[in-house]
Amino acid sequence: MAECAHTWNMTNRQFGFAVFERCSHCRIIRAYYAEQDSWDDYKEGEHHWSIVENAQTFRFDLECEECGMYVSYDDFLGLLYCTSCLDDCPVEILRKKYEEDNTWILVGFGFLPESSANPYSAEKLEVLSEYFNQRRDTSRSRVKILPNSLIDKLSLCRGDFIHDVGMLSLEPPEERKPLF
């Protein structure tokens, strides 16, 4: 039987929060998806976590409507869009290359810190790119999602997450501060 070309549908959508927190001792950044937001500092073993940001986000899975193949994204944090902050960052170099081809680069993040050492599955990011391309007019432009491990120095990255930050702020939204 011929291999399925896959037609992806988004399924099992749930709305929740991307929580970014920093340990005040070791300065490590941790980020993950949670159903509820939380704003309180807390201790966990050696770590003392303070919330850096709570962003409204959603989680989902993808399912092929032809063959039923199911890809879970329960360990996916979100998409970051490159702001060209570092000339020699591999993401920026690829971004310039793909731009000539009308392809638009995003960076897919798994939970942190895990995904900075073990990149998010390239196969799953490819499926996600395919999902977004299948539903767009690709004669105009395409989308390509790269793994966050390609970012040269995360601590210097000034990329922006496509997350809902500051929805609850009572001040009109100003320039957002970088998350890293």
Binding site: L79, Y81, L106, F132, D137, R140, S141, V143, D160, P173
Partner: peptide, 15 residues
């Protein structure tokens, strides 16, 4: 009513 530049990547992503 959002005007932050992130509306552009979001609009682009969903075409």
């Amino acid at each position: 009513v959002q005007t932050h530049k992130n509306i552009v990547p979001a609009a682009n992503l969903v075409d």
